[in-house]
């Protein structure tokens, strides 16, 4: 099973310049997708989750069209061919 992860331009600078990353390690949920992501691109971890492994407050992850916040958080299931989207939330001031 493989999934495609799309990350914003800012984060692509910490992933070899690519905004589209393929995970082929057979992840079954978002947490496993992220773990594979950290293995390949360690600099992404601190920017997406905090020390406790919690998704940063103003970062959203979608599996397809579904925000993980509305589902099971990082335990949300992924499926073969899924597109996982990591996006900055509307925030700031």
């Amino acid at each position: 099973m493989s999934v495609t992860v799309r990350i914003p331009t800012y984060l692509a600078g910490f992933a070899g310049g690519s905004s589209v990353l393929r995970i082929d390690s057979g992840p079954t949920n978002v947490r496993e997708v992220l773990d594979a992501l950290w293995q390949a691109h360690p600099a992404l971890r601190d920017r997406i989750v905090d020390e406790q492994g919690q998704l940063r407050q103003h970062v959203n992850i979608f599996v397809g069209d579904e925000a993980v916040a509305w589902n099971e958080g990082l335990e949300s299931k992924v499926y073969d061919g899924a597109e996982v989207l990591i996006v900055p939330a509307v925030s700031g001031g």
Partner: peptide
């Protein structure tokens, strides 16, 4: 707001600055 809090440095008054791969000030899990 999005990507957390981290330290940066410059040795040439801002012309170049560090962009840490991993954050250096973190609480233990």
């Amino acid at each position: 707001f999005r990507w957390g809090t981290f330290l940066k440095t410059t040795d040439d008054f801002g012309k170049t600055s560090t962009e840490p791969e991993t954050y250096s000030v973190k609480f233990p899990e």
